[in-house]
Amino acid sequence: MQIKGFNIKYIYNENSIDRSTALNGVSFTFNQGDFICIVGKTGSGKSTLVQTLNALLLPSEGYVNIDEFFITGNKKLKKELLKKKDKKQKKDNKNYSNLRKKVGLVFQFPEYQLFSNSVINDVMFGPLNFGFSKEEAKTMAIKALSDVGLNENYYEKSPFLLSGGEKRRVAIAGILASNPEVIVLDEPTAGLDNKGKVEIMKVLTTLNNLGKTLIVITHDMSVVQNYAKTVIVMSEGKIVHKTIPDKLFDEVDLEEYSLEVPLFIKFKKLLKNNGFEGNLEKISSYQDLIDEIIRIKGSKLNG
């Protein structure tokens, strides 16, 4: 399943004095199975963009196309897009609940959406809303919980008594349970300790390996470096770069977008600037770097 965006514009408070343009002509194509990280300053339009992907916000101009769904707030445009198409599509595009089954969105600090008295009930809530039977929902919830690494000891616990990292995993399971093909996460690692972060990212990588498309907003460049396949840089409501992580670190001045360069990359650049002779292009981990240093040192010793 491909996600396409065509010249999306979104304006908050359109008819008011405090109107502000959050998206200003954004176009993109996301492929099935991709792991996309969206980075950029606060206020660059990242959260607005991902909210248009499951129709929580409808673009003022332009549209997002996912399978048979056309997401736009422009009624004229929508009418044109849906012309000559079948009735089912029209119905699907009226309220987007079927779309939300396909595209799951996990908000920043998702633990604030928990409300049930037990973990299992909270995770079952999504599938039940999407019309699955109670048994199906339970199976789906159990699978989602095991995907995020929570076993049966947790099922009957109150979600409010869990730790921060556990709450977040329950909330993510709440979205996974409906088995969406695309999972969008807004800063999944914010406010977590290193262990929690690694655990969450491990879950996400596993999901990506199963063929799910992941779209992750983050400020953490180590997430970009270690997990992303594609990275998008946003600034002032526009996509300014779409590239692979290595190229991003090599070619783009990240400080311009208030982004931090990972230590490893900084170190590589320092080595290069100080006349390191080895081939730094292919090196992507500390082990590779050590090997390269040993290789050069060895060849020098031999020479």
Partner: peptide
């Protein structure tokens, strides 16, 4: 603001507040 955020989060879990 908080309630709007929560409403959006629940909407993406399939809740329809108007229906």
């Amino acid at each position: 603001e908080k309630s709007q955020r929560i409403m959006k989060a629940q909407k993406s879990r399939g809740v329809d507040f108007n229906k």
